[in-house]
Simulated assay, not measured.
Amino acid sequence: MATFRIKRFNPEKQPEPYFEEFNLDIADGATLLDCMNEIKWTLDGSLTYRMSCRSAICGSCAVKANGHALLACQRQGEHLLDNDDTITLEPLGNMKPIKDLVVDFTPFWDKINKVKPYLEPKDEAPAKERHQSQEEFRIIDDASTCIMCGACYSDCNTLEVDDNFLGPAALAKAQRFVGDSRDSKTLQRVQDLSEPGGIWDCTHCGECVERCPKPARPFDRIKEIMTVALENGVHNNNGARHALSFTNSVKRSGNLNENRIPVESMGFFNIPGLLSLIPIGLRMLLKGKVPPVIHHSIDEVDDVKRIFKELDQ
Protein backbone atom coordinates (compact mmCIF):
# COMPACT_ATOMS: atom_id res chain seq x y z
CA MET A 1 0.00 0.00 0.00
CA ALA A 2 1.45 3.32 -1.10
CA THR A 3 0.70 6.73 0.35
CA PHE A 4 0.14 9.64 -2.01
CA ARG A 5 0.70 12.94 -0.25
CA ILE A 6 -0.91 15.50 -2.55
CA LYS A 7 -0.82 19.26 -2.21
CA ARG A 8 -4.39 20.52 -2.47
CA PHE A 9 -5.60 24.03 -3.16
CA ASN A 10 -9.07 25.37 -3.78
CA PRO A 11 -9.22 29.15 -3.30
CA GLU A 12 -13.02 29.06 -3.28
CA LYS A 13 -13.00 26.96 -0.11
CA GLN A 14 -9.65 27.46 1.60
CA PRO A 15 -7.19 30.33 1.08
CA GLU A 16 -4.03 28.35 1.84
CA PRO A 17 -2.78 25.11 0.26
CA TYR A 18 -2.55 21.97 2.37
CA PHE A 19 -1.48 18.34 1.99
CA GLU A 20 -3.92 15.45 1.89
CA GLU A 21 -2.96 11.79 1.95
CA PHE A 22 -4.48 8.94 -0.05
CA ASN A 23 -3.64 5.26 0.26
CA LEU A 24 -3.55 3.19 -2.90
CA ASP A 25 -2.26 -0.16 -4.10
CA ILE A 26 -0.11 0.54 -7.15
CA ALA A 27 -0.84 -1.93 -9.92
CA ASP A 28 2.09 -3.51 -11.74
CA GLY A 29 3.28 -1.21 -14.50
CA ALA A 30 0.96 1.63 -13.49
CA THR A 31 2.25 5.08 -14.32
CA LEU A 32 2.01 7.94 -11.90
CA LEU A 33 -0.82 9.30 -14.03
CA ASP A 34 -2.64 5.96 -13.75
CA CYS A 35 -2.36 6.29 -9.97
CA MET A 36 -3.65 9.86 -10.04
CA ASN A 37 -6.60 8.76 -12.16
CA GLU A 38 -7.35 5.92 -9.76
CA ILE A 39 -7.38 8.34 -6.83
CA LYS A 40 -9.67 10.72 -8.70
CA TRP A 41 -12.02 8.02 -9.97
CA THR A 42 -12.31 5.98 -6.78
CA LEU A 43 -11.29 8.11 -3.79
CA ASP A 44 -11.84 11.82 -4.46
CA GLY A 45 -13.43 13.12 -7.63
CA SER A 46 -12.52 16.70 -6.75
CA LEU A 47 -8.78 16.12 -7.28
CA THR A 48 -7.79 18.39 -10.16
CA TYR A 49 -4.90 18.06 -12.60
CA ARG A 50 -4.22 18.23 -16.33
CA MET A 51 -3.86 15.26 -18.66
CA SER A 52 -4.46 14.36 -22.27
CA CYS A 53 -2.40 12.01 -24.44
CA ARG A 54 -0.95 9.65 -21.79
CA SER A 55 1.97 9.13 -24.18
CA ALA A 56 4.51 11.81 -23.20
CA ILE A 57 3.61 13.85 -26.28
CA CYS A 58 1.30 16.65 -25.15
CA GLY A 59 3.10 17.65 -21.93
CA SER A 60 -0.16 18.34 -20.09
CA CYS A 61 0.41 16.09 -17.08
CA ALA A 62 3.63 17.65 -15.76
CA VAL A 63 3.67 17.82 -11.95
CA LYS A 64 6.23 17.78 -9.18
CA ALA A 65 6.83 14.36 -7.66
CA ASN A 66 9.07 14.20 -4.60
CA GLY A 67 10.30 17.71 -5.31
CA HIS A 68 11.14 17.38 -9.01
CA ALA A 69 9.10 18.11 -12.12
CA LEU A 70 8.24 15.24 -14.45
CA LEU A 71 5.55 13.92 -16.77
CA ALA A 72 3.14 11.83 -14.74
CA CYS A 73 2.44 9.57 -17.71
CA GLN A 74 6.13 8.83 -18.29
CA ARG A 75 7.14 7.45 -14.89
CA GLN A 76 5.94 4.31 -13.16
CA GLY A 77 4.44 4.90 -9.75
CA GLU A 78 6.40 2.21 -7.93
CA HIS A 79 9.68 3.73 -9.13
CA LEU A 80 8.84 6.99 -7.35
CA LEU A 81 8.19 5.56 -3.90
CA ASP A 82 10.49 6.89 -1.19
CA ASN A 83 11.73 4.89 1.79
CA ASP A 84 8.36 5.34 3.50
CA ASP A 85 6.42 4.09 0.45
CA THR A 86 5.20 7.64 -0.10
CA ILE A 87 4.96 9.82 -3.20
CA THR A 88 4.58 13.56 -2.64
CA LEU A 89 2.81 15.41 -5.44
CA GLU A 90 2.82 19.18 -5.87
CA PRO A 91 1.98 21.61 -8.67
CA LEU A 92 4.76 22.82 -10.95
CA GLY A 93 6.97 25.50 -9.46
CA ASN A 94 7.52 29.12 -10.53
CA MET A 95 3.84 29.39 -11.52
CA LYS A 96 0.78 30.20 -9.43
CA PRO A 97 -1.53 27.29 -8.61
CA ILE A 98 -5.11 27.60 -9.81
CA LYS A 99 -6.50 24.48 -8.16
CA ASP A 100 -4.70 21.45 -6.74
CA LEU A 101 -2.06 20.41 -9.31
CA VAL A 102 -3.18 22.85 -12.02
CA VAL A 103 -1.07 25.99 -12.44
CA ASP A 104 -1.41 29.21 -14.41
CA PHE A 105 0.85 28.99 -17.47
CA THR A 106 0.34 32.65 -18.43
CA PRO A 107 3.90 33.80 -17.55
CA PHE A 108 5.32 30.75 -19.30
CA TRP A 109 3.51 31.56 -22.55
CA ASP A 110 4.26 35.27 -22.23
CA LYS A 111 7.97 34.48 -22.21
CA ILE A 112 7.65 32.07 -25.12
CA ASN A 113 5.95 34.83 -27.12
CA LYS A 114 8.63 37.33 -26.10
CA VAL A 115 11.34 35.46 -28.03
CA LYS A 116 9.31 35.71 -31.28
CA PRO A 117 8.93 31.95 -31.82
CA TYR A 118 8.31 32.11 -35.53
CA LEU A 119 10.38 32.24 -38.68
CA GLU A 120 11.25 35.63 -40.15
CA PRO A 121 12.44 34.50 -43.58
CA LYS A 122 15.25 36.01 -45.58
CA ASP A 123 13.28 36.35 -48.79
CA GLU A 124 9.84 36.14 -50.33
CA ALA A 125 7.99 32.87 -50.03
CA PRO A 126 9.04 30.50 -52.83
CA ALA A 127 6.58 28.65 -55.02
CA LYS A 128 7.22 25.54 -52.92
CA GLU A 129 8.76 24.95 -49.50
CA ARG A 130 12.04 26.42 -48.27
CA HIS A 131 14.70 23.74 -48.27
CA GLN A 132 17.25 22.89 -45.60
CA SER A 133 20.09 20.41 -45.70
CA GLN A 134 20.23 17.67 -43.10
CA GLU A 135 23.20 19.42 -41.50
CA GLU A 136 21.26 22.68 -41.24
CA PHE A 137 18.27 20.94 -39.70
CA ARG A 138 20.38 19.10 -37.12
CA ILE A 139 21.27 22.47 -35.58
CA ILE A 140 17.62 23.02 -34.60
CA ASP A 141 16.44 19.42 -34.37
CA ASP A 142 16.77 19.01 -30.60
CA ALA A 143 15.06 22.32 -29.82
CA SER A 144 12.18 21.23 -32.05
CA THR A 145 11.41 18.31 -29.71
CA CYS A 146 10.23 20.58 -26.87
CA ILE A 147 6.61 19.79 -25.92
CA MET A 148 6.09 22.88 -23.72
CA CYS A 149 5.36 20.82 -20.61
CA GLY A 150 6.89 23.42 -18.28
CA ALA A 151 9.03 20.94 -16.32
CA CYS A 152 12.23 22.90 -16.94
CA TYR A 153 10.50 26.19 -16.14
CA SER A 154 9.17 24.71 -12.90
CA ASP A 155 12.56 23.71 -11.53
CA CYS A 156 14.65 26.59 -12.91
CA ASN A 157 16.72 28.03 -10.06
CA THR A 158 17.10 31.43 -11.70
CA LEU A 159 13.35 31.87 -12.09
CA GLU A 160 12.91 31.25 -8.37
CA VAL A 161 14.73 34.50 -7.64
CA ASP A 162 14.29 36.48 -10.87
CA ASP A 163 10.89 36.73 -12.56
CA ASN A 164 12.53 38.72 -15.35
CA PHE A 165 14.48 35.68 -16.58
CA LEU A 166 13.03 34.29 -19.81
CA GLY A 167 13.47 30.75 -18.60
CA PRO A 168 14.86 27.60 -20.21
CA ALA A 169 11.82 26.73 -22.32
CA ALA A 170 11.64 30.14 -24.00
CA LEU A 171 15.39 30.20 -24.60
CA ALA A 172 15.33 26.69 -26.06
CA LYS A 173 12.54 27.82 -28.36
CA ALA A 174 14.60 30.90 -29.25
CA GLN A 175 17.52 28.70 -30.32
CA ARG A 176 15.14 26.92 -32.68
CA PHE A 177 15.04 30.16 -34.72
CA VAL A 178 18.48 31.60 -33.93
CA GLY A 179 19.92 28.46 -35.50
CA ASP A 180 17.50 28.27 -38.43
CA SER A 181 19.34 28.79 -41.71
CA ARG A 182 16.19 30.28 -43.26
CA ASP A 183 15.77 33.04 -40.67
CA SER A 184 16.83 36.63 -41.38
CA LYS A 185 16.96 38.00 -37.82
CA THR A 186 19.80 36.04 -36.24
CA LEU A 187 21.78 39.11 -35.15
CA GLN A 188 18.73 40.93 -33.83
CA ARG A 189 17.62 37.82 -31.97
CA VAL A 190 20.94 37.29 -30.17
CA GLN A 191 21.13 40.99 -29.34
CA ASP A 192 17.69 40.83 -27.73
CA LEU A 193 18.51 37.57 -25.95
CA SER A 194 21.70 39.11 -24.52
CA GLU A 195 19.71 41.74 -22.64
CA PRO A 196 19.08 41.35 -18.87
CA GLY A 197 16.81 38.38 -18.27
CA GLY A 198 18.23 36.54 -21.26
CA ILE A 199 20.91 33.94 -21.93
CA TRP A 200 23.58 35.36 -19.64
CA ASP A 201 21.33 35.21 -16.57
CA CYS A 202 21.31 31.40 -16.73
CA THR A 203 23.19 29.97 -13.72
CA HIS A 204 24.47 26.91 -15.67
CA CYS A 205 23.09 24.55 -13.01
CA GLY A 206 21.77 22.08 -15.60
CA GLU A 207 18.54 21.41 -13.70
CA CYS A 208 16.50 22.03 -16.85
CA VAL A 209 18.37 19.25 -18.64
CA GLU A 210 17.67 16.86 -15.77
CA ARG A 211 13.94 17.63 -15.86
CA CYS A 212 13.38 17.77 -19.61
CA PRO A 213 11.49 14.64 -20.75
CA LYS A 214 12.63 15.08 -24.35
CA PRO A 215 15.98 15.62 -26.12
CA ALA A 216 15.48 19.40 -26.08
CA ARG A 217 18.11 19.85 -23.31
CA PRO A 218 17.43 23.58 -22.74
CA PHE A 219 20.81 24.43 -21.22
CA ASP A 220 22.59 23.06 -24.29
CA ARG A 221 20.40 25.27 -26.45
CA ILE A 222 21.22 28.29 -24.26
CA LYS A 223 24.94 27.61 -24.70
CA GLU A 224 24.45 27.48 -28.47
CA ILE A 225 22.82 30.92 -28.43
CA MET A 226 25.73 32.22 -26.34
CA THR A 227 28.15 30.91 -28.95
CA VAL A 228 26.24 32.58 -31.79
CA ALA A 229 26.11 35.85 -29.84
CA LEU A 230 29.87 35.83 -29.25
CA GLU A 231 30.60 34.89 -32.86
CA ASN A 232 28.46 37.83 -34.00
CA GLY A 233 30.30 40.29 -31.79
CA VAL A 234 27.49 40.82 -29.27
CA HIS A 235 29.86 41.53 -26.39
CA ASN A 236 28.47 44.66 -24.74
CA ASN A 237 27.01 42.98 -21.68
CA ASN A 238 28.35 41.53 -18.44
CA GLY A 239 27.73 37.92 -19.42
CA ALA A 240 29.60 38.05 -22.71
CA ARG A 241 32.45 40.05 -21.17
CA HIS A 242 32.70 37.49 -18.37
CA ALA A 243 32.84 34.58 -20.83
CA LEU A 244 35.55 36.31 -22.88
CA SER A 245 37.55 37.31 -19.80
CA PHE A 246 37.31 33.77 -18.41
CA THR A 247 38.52 32.29 -21.70
CA ASN A 248 41.32 34.80 -22.19
CA SER A 249 42.54 34.32 -18.64
CA VAL A 250 42.91 30.57 -19.14
CA LYS A 251 44.45 31.14 -22.56
CA ARG A 252 47.08 33.54 -21.18
CA SER A 253 48.09 31.77 -17.99
CA GLY A 254 46.38 28.39 -17.77
CA ASN A 255 44.22 29.41 -14.82
CA LEU A 256 41.85 32.15 -13.70
CA ASN A 257 42.99 35.63 -12.80
CA GLU A 258 40.32 36.23 -10.17
CA ASN A 259 41.31 39.86 -9.70
CA ARG A 260 40.99 40.73 -13.35
CA ILE A 261 37.86 38.77 -14.34
CA PRO A 262 35.35 40.75 -12.20
CA VAL A 263 36.67 44.07 -13.53
CA GLU A 264 36.66 42.94 -17.16
CA SER A 265 33.21 41.40 -16.74
CA MET A 266 31.78 44.62 -15.37
CA GLY A 267 33.51 46.73 -18.04
CA PHE A 268 36.40 49.15 -17.55
CA PHE A 269 34.20 52.19 -18.28
CA ASN A 270 31.23 51.03 -16.23
CA ILE A 271 32.00 53.22 -13.22
CA PRO A 272 28.80 52.46 -11.22
CA GLY A 273 29.31 48.76 -11.82
CA LEU A 274 32.94 48.87 -10.75
CA LEU A 275 32.04 50.80 -7.61
CA SER A 276 29.47 48.13 -6.77
CA LEU A 277 32.33 45.60 -6.53
CA ILE A 278 34.00 47.48 -3.67
CA PRO A 279 31.76 46.16 -0.83
CA ILE A 280 32.23 42.59 -2.09
CA GLY A 281 35.98 43.12 -2.27
CA LEU A 282 36.08 44.47 1.28
CA ARG A 283 34.13 41.49 2.62
CA MET A 284 36.52 39.13 0.82
CA LEU A 285 39.47 41.01 2.32
CA LEU A 286 38.07 40.72 5.84
CA LYS A 287 37.46 37.00 5.34
CA GLY A 288 40.91 36.38 3.90
CA LYS A 289 39.47 35.40 0.52
CA VAL A 290 41.27 37.92 -1.70
CA PRO A 291 43.25 36.22 -4.50
CA PRO A 292 47.00 36.89 -4.76
CA VAL A 293 47.76 40.32 -6.21
CA ILE A 294 50.42 38.90 -8.52
CA HIS A 295 48.93 36.35 -10.89
CA HIS A 296 51.19 33.49 -11.97
CA SER A 297 50.90 31.18 -14.94
CA ILE A 298 50.89 27.43 -14.50
CA ASP A 299 54.01 25.48 -15.49
CA GLU A 300 52.20 23.83 -18.41
CA VAL A 301 50.88 27.09 -19.88
CA ASP A 302 52.51 26.36 -23.25
CA ASP A 303 50.40 23.20 -23.51
CA VAL A 304 47.27 25.23 -22.79
CA LYS A 305 48.19 27.76 -25.47
CA ARG A 306 48.77 24.93 -27.93
CA ILE A 307 45.29 23.56 -27.23
CA PHE A 308 43.74 26.97 -27.85
CA LYS A 309 45.73 27.35 -31.06
CA GLU A 310 44.48 24.00 -32.33
CA LEU A 311 40.90 24.92 -31.45
CA ASP A 312 41.21 28.23 -33.30
CA GLN A 313 42.38 26.54 -36.50
Rank of each mutant, 00 (worst) to 15 (best):
E300V: 11
E231R: 15
K96H: 07
G197S: 00
D220T: 07
K251E: 08
K289E: 15
S60N: 14
C146P: 11
C146I: 12
G206I: 05
R211M: 12
V290I: 13
D44A: 05
R221P: 01
R306E: 08
K96M: 00
L187V: 01
N237T: 11
P213A: 06
S276A: 15
L187Q: 03
G29D: 07
K7V: 02
K287T: 08
F269E: 15
S52A: 10
G197L: 00
P91V: 01
D28Q: 07
M266S: 09
M266T: 14
E78K: 13
L101E: 02
T88S: 06
P218S: 08
N66T: 08
F22K: 02
M1I: 09
L92W: 00
R252C: 11
K13W: 04
I147S: 00
V178W: 00
L24C: 10
C208P: 02
D110C: 10
E38K: 14
R182D: 04
K40A: 08
F177W: 10
A151V: 01
R5V: 01
D100H: 12
Q132W: 12
H79K: 08
P91Y: 04
E310S: 14
F19R: 05
I140G: 01
I278L: 11
V178S: 03
G288A: 13
M148R: 07
E231V: 02
P126F: 12
G273L: 05
G67R: 09
E195F: 01
E300I: 09
A229Y: 05
